[in-house]
Design a protein around this nucleic acid. Structure first.
Lengths: 249, 249
DNA sequence: CGCTGTCTGTGCGCTACGGCACCTAAAGTC
DNA sequence: GACTTTAGGTGCCGTAGCGCACAGACAGCG
């Protein structure tokens, strides 16, 4: 029996591994709590730990001088923070910040490099996930450039909900603004529209998703496209079955 | 003597290889002409050919429904189109379009996969380049989101000049607009400002760079940052020596 | 209890850029 | 030489989002 069954929420990448590799890997892992705002990976530094999120999740952000950080990727239990280690390069390419409190498996970079030698399936899996990440970076770049704040906010809430495994999110408008690369008050306006439409509700840093289906139609297609690209590369694990594409008008 | 010496402009990735690997690789390559607008890689299709540009160059673009394609990466003789093949995945993650006429080495995907088995240095090199590409995707996403059209245009001209190895570029405003994700007439305005300042001159699809130093100060720092990240990962080959950072005001 | 810090609501003027339309000029075509 | 096509120039209005500023509201703390 796998050590994984200790946790209710599992990491999808680990789930895909044969039990032998799971155990080999988890031997070197410890369960840690990710806390909001923590900077897990500093760019251009060597990796120290890598993370397989469970119900915590992490943003990849790019910092442009003179601007708030912009989110370009989101990593939850469908993925892993630090995949680029499969390239046998131990430098962090992109900064990562914890975005949702929760648990994750953590492993030392050096340990993972060792484990990779004996675990071909793990290597394969990380290669595939890196591929997906590339596609998502491209997708997000386009989304951030063209789509309206309200659509992007909707998408972002959906993606966070998927990764938090809860309809309750701890997020201030300030933080959302930073992730989306816009003003705080811009988010307030967009969010209050959504609140009036009963899509969400919030008070002081607690956002609750009330009507997920409606949020889906408000969000840009990038939400669905992002899921599709993941599923195409890493097979369907159907996290939220039968949520069909709702093309925007 | 390496086959490479047939060409004046060389591909920097290939230059880094030991001669034995160079020859092993070039055995399977043919020199082809890249022509403007050609779509070399279609996303979600299997790779057919991969390219090591010489004086031709290629854009990675992301297509968002209802918008013109947005450029998120630029590949010239400092890099390679199709690096993701080192992940042992033969699907194209990001669409590529030829952006500057010129020559490139072309190799069949299957041939490269074979060659990779005997060429550890090549594999290493592609891994490093993929790492750089990741960083550049992140950088470009931020740049496209925050920076002004004129700065981005300046940067873009500089990067194209580096890759074309010529101060003469064949580009219409229309095309520039698409790459930068803006209106055509927006580019016309930005370009005519630059022309008035004697930074560039152009007539009907022929842009000439007159004052590179001044363009550097007009462009966002992303130009320099992009060079830095390449040099950090793939060592200095000093394409344009002694061009120091000119921090914007 | 009041103080203080954090979160949210709202407004105002500004700007970069979008959409659109139209016009000129050079280049290609017959 | 006349016609069409394509590249570039210009203008007008609309608008998303910015910078900034200020006010209310709730939370925690002494």
């Amino acid at each position: 029996m796998s050590l994984l069954t200790q946790s209710i929420v599992q990491n999808h990448l680990l789930e895909r591994l044969p039990v032998s590799e799971q155990n080999e890997l988890l031997q070197h892992c410890e369960k840690v709590k990710l806390t909001f705002g923590e900077e897990l990976c500093l760019p251009d530094q060597p990796y120290q730990y890598l993370y397989f999120p469970l119900d915590g999740f992490v943003s990849l952000v790019t910092k442009v001088a003179g601007h708030t950080p912009l989110e370009i990727g989101l990593i939850g239990n469908e993925g892993m923070l630090g995949v680029t280690l499969v390239l046998d390069i131990d430098t962090v390419p992109i900064q990562a910040v914890v975005q949702g409190n929760g648990m994750a498996w953590r492993i030392e970079a050096k340990a993972l490099q060792q484990v990779l030698k004996n675990c071909p399936q793990l290597r394969r899996c990380l290669q595939q996930y890196l591929f997906v990440l590339l596609q998502q970076l491209a997708l997000n770049a386009g989304c951030a450039h063209f789509h309206l704040l309200e659509q992007r906010l909707a998408r972002w809430l959906l993606m966070s909900q998927d990764r938090a495994h809860s309809e309750q999110l701890q997020l201030t408008h300030q933080f959302l603004a930073q992730m989306l690369g816009v003003r705080r008050s811009g988010v307030t306006v967009a969010a209050s529209v959504m609140q009036r439409q009963q899509l969400i509700s919030y008070t002081r840093g607690e956002i609750k998703i009330l009507n997920r289906a409606a949020l889906l139609t408000q969000s840009c297609q990038c939400y669905q496209l992002s899921l599709n690209s993941y599923n195409a590369a890493l097979g369907d694990l159907k996290p939220t079955p039968a949520e069909e594409v709702a093309p925007a008008p």
